[in-house]
Design a protein around this nucleic acid. Sequence first.
DNA 1: AACTTATCCAACCGCCGCTAC
DNA 2: AGTAGCGGCGGTTGGATAAGT
Length: 232
Amino acid sequence: MGGVAWTEEEDQLLKKCIERYGEGKWHRVPLLAGLNRCRKSCRLRWLNYLRPNIKRGSFAEDEVQLIIKLHKLLGNKWSLIAGRLPGRTANDVKNYWNCHLSKKLSAQETEEEYQSAVMNVESISPKPARSIVITQDYHVAPNSLPAIQESSMSAPFDFIGVDQQGRELMKEEIEIRVQEPAGGVFIGDLATEGHQFGEFDEVNVLGRSDEGCSKWDWDDLMLDMDLWTDLL
DNA sequence: AACTTATCCAACCGCCGCTAC
DNA sequence: AGTAGCGGCGGTTGGATAAGT
């Protein structure tokens, strides 16, 4: 190993410590756990190995394609990339990139070939998507026809809307009427029927709902927007 | 079977940004 | 404003293992 390997006993001590005191305060963990390890070693061991729900084994093809795609967008931002791959750690992604993908991709002689690999990405939706507030003036009332612009894009967001009174509407709550490009009217529930925001032309993002957005920041939103438009 | 080379990946190191004082 | 302490990140190292000769 690059350093001194962790023993089963050390793993158990660390695990019990985290379960008892929670994550964070890593400077205290060595003392609390009774480990002769530095704070960084403890944190890394937990994040890369002991943490629940860590996915082991080789990367699936869709994961690989997503890594390629995200690396193109983000560069060596391994933690951000790993954040889009449930169960994978930044170290896993970095190692996989260094061992497999960097060589593989550098072997491709032309930029066109690289672009081709990137564009072969399957349609993998970005990580869940929290609520955003949009400007669309659609209505909940069954008989009202909204003034909604048309679009050829589908949205990756679990968005909410704003009704005529300015109230925020959760995705699950709304039945929405949409004026289709051909002039017809689509009626459906976005959540249960799987309809996407494909009937609109523009989405003007004004801001975000505070609810459920604790880990959601503007960079995430912009990344999703990039992914979203690139995948079309 | 013995040796060499390549690959994988867990662990460490140094730096950075943030926060509290 | 300056400094110390902290968490977090990306780059690198080096031991274990697999593959090749």
